[in-house]
Amino acid sequence: MTRYALVTGASSGIGLAMAEALARRGRNLILVSRHRDMLESIALEFTQRFGVEVLFRACDLGEPLRLSGFLLELEEGERQIDLLVNCAGIGNSGPFLAQEWAQEQDLLDLNVLALTRLCHTVGNLMAVQGGGQILNVASIMGFQPGPWMSTYAASKAYVLHFSEGLREELKKTGVKISVLCPGPTRTSFFRTAQLNADKFTDDKTMTAEEIALYTVRALDKNRAIIIPGRRNRFLAQLPRLTGRWMARKIWGSILKSRTSA
């Protein structure tokens, strides 16, 4: 039976870079994103360049009914998924009380609920077939409070802790769980999250392609927590080095000064 890697958020950023890194290794892909035209173009390009089978599904995973329909397709389908890359996610910034609640709910629906439901459905499919691997994408923000990005940071803390817990639970099923915690990356995230990219990035900031290359190698080693870049590994340790009260103040000062608003 043909095996596939399922990548969400695959039309841009780290999701697209992960899909390309896997295609380079000869992996057949199922790509998921809201943007059908972009997925169609990516699927054609990867098929031609790498000689792999690339299927795609345009779906807004943050909408519960559409997510349920997609999950039902996976459960009733005959394609075997041995790698799930949960990369779909959104961010926002600014004072929590000033945010439109609909935007906050969209973030939680996608970053938390959709990721968890995908892990539940695909994890069960993998357990039945005797194993597989799941990579959830969090952030170094998951290690500390993020004033002025409070909901986003909390959602990534959930992904981090959920993934670590799931890793222990599923050991005997043969399903391996890893969590990727990148730092600032050269993607469109800053624009969509209303952050000033120039204040977050410099010539040492990793690209999505560098993140993906590091990550696929770490997956080969079944690493539990994947933090690409020495600077990012230091930032992840900041609350331990300074204390959480100081980390709140440091990150609050940084993030407040770097919102686009």
Score class of each variant (00 low, 15 high):
M141I: 14
D82G: 01
S93F: 08
P147V: 09
A138E: 01
L160A: 10
Q99A: 08
G89I: 13
Q99W: 06
E169Q: 08
A154F: 07
G91K: 06
G165P: 05
L135W: 02
A127I: 05
W101P: 09
L83H: 02
L115N: 04
G91P: 00
V137P: 00
G91N: 09
Q129P: 14
S93E: 08
G91C: 15
L118D: 01
N86V: 00
L110P: 00
D109Q: 13
G123N: 11
A98P: 06
A157L: 10
T121P: 02
V85Q: 04
V112T: 06
E75P: 04
L110K: 01
S163T: 06
E76A: 01
L115V: 09
E104W: 12
V85K: 00
L110I: 04
G130A: 12
E168V: 10
R117Q: 11
E164I: 12
P147W: 14
D109N: 12
A88Q: 03
E104S: 11
G94R: 08
L113R: 15
R117V: 11
Y158T: 15
N111F: 04
E169G: 01
L74W: 05
S163P: 14
S93M: 09
I81A: 00
C119P: 13
N136F: 08
A138P: 05
L160G: 00
D82S: 02
P95L: 14
Q105K: 11
N111C: 07
A127P: 01
V128S: 03
V128H: 12
G131L: 02
L83A: 03
G146L: 15
S139Y: 11
G146N: 14
T151M: 15
S155E: 03
G123I: 02
M141W: 05
W148V: 04
